[in-house]
Amino acid sequence: MNIPANLKYTKSHEWVRVESDGTVTVGITDHAQELLGDLVFVELPDIGKTLAAEQEAAIVESVKAASDVYAPIAGTVIEVNGAVPDAPESVNQDAYAAWLFKLKPANAADVDALLDAAAYAACADE
């Protein structure tokens, strides 16, 4: 299972990367895309939408199932990866390159409460 050590994670299989400007980039983990199988549809949140932590933010659909993608922390959507809805398979090809959306955190310290790679690996194995 590919779990980069430089990212933070949620139990619901989102990854989070803190950017140099303090924003956070969010996607689904390699483990999540493996469980879902071939993605055929991705719906992203609207730019400007304010999300609570663990609120439904996006939807990913595969040939097997549809799954919600949750906001890992509270914040405002400042950017979406417009290439992903046109090529949902890009998430299957590289889940950590095919990010879904970026948030301006309501509280940057909230990222510290997310799982590190070791904790996520233990949780993903359950």
Rank of each mutant, 00 (worst) to 15 (best):
103 L>E: 05
51 L>C: 06
74 A>P: 11
21 D>C: 01
6 N>T: 08
61 E>Q: 09
112 D>S: 11
94 D>H: 07
105 P>A: 12
76 T>H: 06
108 A>S: 10
114 L>K: 00
34 E>N: 15
114 L>W: 02
45 P>Y: 02
39 L>K: 08
46 D>Q: 12
117 A>V: 03
125 D>Q: 15
77 V>P: 02
33 Q>K: 13
91 V>Y: 00
59 I>A: 12
8 K>H: 14
56 E>F: 03
1 M>H: 14
18 V>F: 00
25 T>G: 06
111 V>K: 03
118 A>E: 15
86 D>C: 00
45 P>M: 04
87 A>Q: 15
58 A>C: 03
9 Y>P: 02
115 L>S: 12
119 A>C: 05
1 M>Q: 09
75 G>Y: 09
6 N>E: 15
40 V>M: 10
38 D>R: 10
40 V>I: 13
115 L>H: 08
11 K>H: 12
105 P>D: 04
114 L>D: 04
4 P>F: 01
79 E>V: 06
51 L>T: 07
65 A>Q: 06
45 P>G: 07
35 L>D: 11
3 I>M: 04
124 A>I: 00
51 L>E: 09
54 E>G: 02
96 Y>K: 01
20 S>K: 10
99 W>P: 05
117 A>I: 03
25 T>K: 04
33 Q>C: 11
23 T>W: 02
110 D>P: 00
75 G>K: 04
57 A>V: 04
29 T>H: 02
49 K>H: 08
103 L>Y: 08
29 T>I: 03
126 E>K: 05
77 V>W: 05
52 A>H: 14
64 K>Q: 11
46 D>L: 11
92 N>M: 07
61 E>C: 11
108 A>D: 06
66 A>S: 14
14 E>K: 09
31 H>T: 13
125 D>W: 12
122 A>T: 15
18 V>T: 15
41 F>C: 05
110 D>S: 13
102 K>T: 12
81 N>Q: 00
86 D>N: 08
111 V>Q: 06
72 P>L: 09
42 V>L: 08
102 K>A: 06
24 V>C: 03
65 A>N: 13
94 D>P: 09
80 V>A: 13
80 V>C: 09
117 A>Y: 11
3 I>W: 06
84 V>Y: 03
79 E>T: 03
89 E>A: 15
104 K>G: 01
105 P>E: 09
107 N>Q: 13
55 Q>M: 08
84 V>K: 02
109 A>K: 01
112 D>P: 05
71 A>V: 07
87 A>P: 10
